[in-house]
Structures are given as structure tokens and as C-alpha cells.
Design a protein around this nucleic acid. Structure first.
Ligand SMILES: [Mn+2]
Ligand SMILES: [Mn+2]
Ligand SMILES: [Zn+2]
Ligand SMILES: [Zn+2]
Lengths: 135, 135
DNA sequence: AGATCCTTTAGATTGAGTCCAATTGCCCAG
DNA sequence: CTGGGCAATTGGACTCAATCTAAAGGATCT
């Protein structure tokens, strides 16, 4: 995704463009992936970028709030940000703590229960936990 | 659940009985609920119990490992322990950060995708995120 | 009693995430 | 241009769930 495309993307989602936001988006939106804030910060630093930790966190919160990326709470120790916003579900490989997208989008949930009164649906997450097969 | 029942429960799950473990189990297994370690610690302290923080954490880890309770990673800030181990799914009310069981157990997932090679299924979690209805 | 082994404990430490007050940078009115 | 206004950024202090450590406690056996 080119610098220009990213700029357009931010604007589409109602996010004011700044150089720091372009840098963070440039890393996360590069491909379908799940990255934690500290991983993004490390990648920025390796590139020689000087974006601060506070800004990385602020920016990811803003992106998630505006719907440009999706926050995932799976690993108990940190929040992952998903560059894919098209609805999809995940495998979580518990032995290695790694998250991957479910290729088959055909998962369907039958008999969705009635929601508690006064509430509305935000979204449905299916998380399939897998582990190494023990022979 | 009586003291004696809890004792039996621990033994069934291969957990050596100690007074601290009975106290922690006494609180968590009291009813179907989702509690974080610090909530359990606070409840113990209010009762005048002297179980240490380290023991509460050790104990909950042990319980989850042995299958007596289930750890849930939903709230990004802490781990909740579920006293219900019968397979079931959850609502997560994002506005108030509260977890509740889905009453209708009839949720069914169709078209479960093939697992990555060399892995086996551990379990499937469905998390339905809900929020206050905006009029 | 002593030896062995598991469990508990206080307190220090870790680390993701948040907060804050000061600074920077951008945009526009005069 | 110029400087006032305002959002965005920043370093560093701070929070707090969770973990670690090394010492003490407790049970069981001989
Ligand atoms: Mn957050
Ligand atoms: Mn844990
Ligand atoms: Zn994904
Ligand atoms: Zn539950």
C-alpha cells in the first residue's frame, strides 16, 4: 500500500493525517497481520523512526476507534491489532501464542441467542484454540 | 456447595487439598460467575482470610490447569476465571466491561474450517460483544 | 527426632499500558 | 509574514495485574 493510498485510507476513516500516523499505518497496513503496540514500536525504531511510545499507543487506539483496524484481546499479556477489518475469525495457537486468520470465511453461527434487553450487537468473535498434536 | 463437596471436587481434579485452596474454591465455585484474581483476593480479605496474593494467583493457575475452572481472556486488563466448565459461550458488554453466560446453549457453529496441519482442536470460544443501545 | 517434599508467603520486580504537563507543528486571521 | 489558537506529540513518571524469588511453613514418613 503506497503512501498516497494510506493517506486516502486515513481520510476515509475520519482520521487527520500526520507523519506519525502515516508511519504507524504504513507498518500495520502493509499486509494482513496481527501486531502488538510494542512490536510496531520496535519496527519503527529499527527503521530509524523517532515516533514516541505514547504516540504509538494513542494512534492505535484512534485507529481502532475509527474502525481502520481491529483490536484483539486474545493473548492475556497484550493487545493485538488486526490489519484486516473485513469480518473474519481466528485460530489461536496456544503453544506458541500466535494468532492466524481463518481462511474459510464460511463459518456460520446458528441459533444466535436473544441479546440482553437494552443492548445491541457490536460483533461476534469466534476464536478456535488449537495446539500441537500430541502423538 | 459445602466444604465437603469442594474437598471432593478438588480431589476429583487431582488437586491436593489445602486450607488456602479450599478458601479460594469456596469463593469461586459458590455460583456460576466470572471473577478476576484481585476480586477473589479482595473477597477473601473482607472475610478476614489471610491467604496471600501469590497463593491466590498460584491457586487459580493450578485450578485452570487441572480443569476445575476456566480462564477467560476477554477484558484486556485482566484474566477472569469462570466457575462454569460445561462448554458455553459469552456475552461481553463492552460499555461496562462485564461478562455473562449465554443462556441458550444451542449456538452451533457450521462449516468449522480445517485445522492447520500438525495441530488439534483445544476448544472453540464464541464471544458476542454487545453495547448499550443508542436510541 | 530428622529428612524430604510440597505449599505458602512477603516483598521485589516486570512490563504493557496510561497519564501528565510541556512542547511542537499546523492553519488561518489580521 | 506573523502570532494566536488548537490539535498532536513527547519523555518520563506512574499504575497495576501478574510473576518471580528465596525463605519459611507444614505435612508425612521412617
Ligand atoms: Mn486499550
Ligand atoms: Mn496466566
Ligand atoms: Zn485477523
Ligand atoms: Zn461463563
Amino acid at each position: 500500500m503506497s503512501r498516497m493510498d494510506i493517506q486516502t485510507r486515513l481520510t476515509e476513516f475520519g482520521i487527520a493525517v500526520t507523519s506519525q500516523r502515516l508511519e504507524v499505518a504504513g507498518i500495520l497496513l502493509d499486509k494482513p497481520q496481527h501486531l502488538a503496540a510494542d512490536q510496531i514500536l520496535a519496527m519503527l525504531r529499527k527503521k530509524g523512526s523517532r515516533v514516541s511510545k505514547a504516540t504509538v499507543y494513542n494512534t492505535l487506539h484512534l485507529f481502532a476507534e475509527k474502525g481502520l483496524v481491529r483490536a484483539l484481546h486474545v493473548d492475556p499479556s497484550r493487545t493485538f491489532y488486526d490489519s484486516t477489518i473485513h469480518p473474519h475469525h481466528h485460530f489461536y495457537h496456544v503453544d506458541i501464542g500466535e494468532l492466524s486468520d481463518i481462511p474459510d470465511e464460511q463459518i456460520r453461527i446458528m441459533n444466535l441467542p436473544p441479546l440482553p434487553p437494552g443492548t445491541e450487537l457490536e460483533n461476534v468473535d469466534v476464536l478456535i484454540k488449537i495446539r500441537d498434536r500430541k502423538i
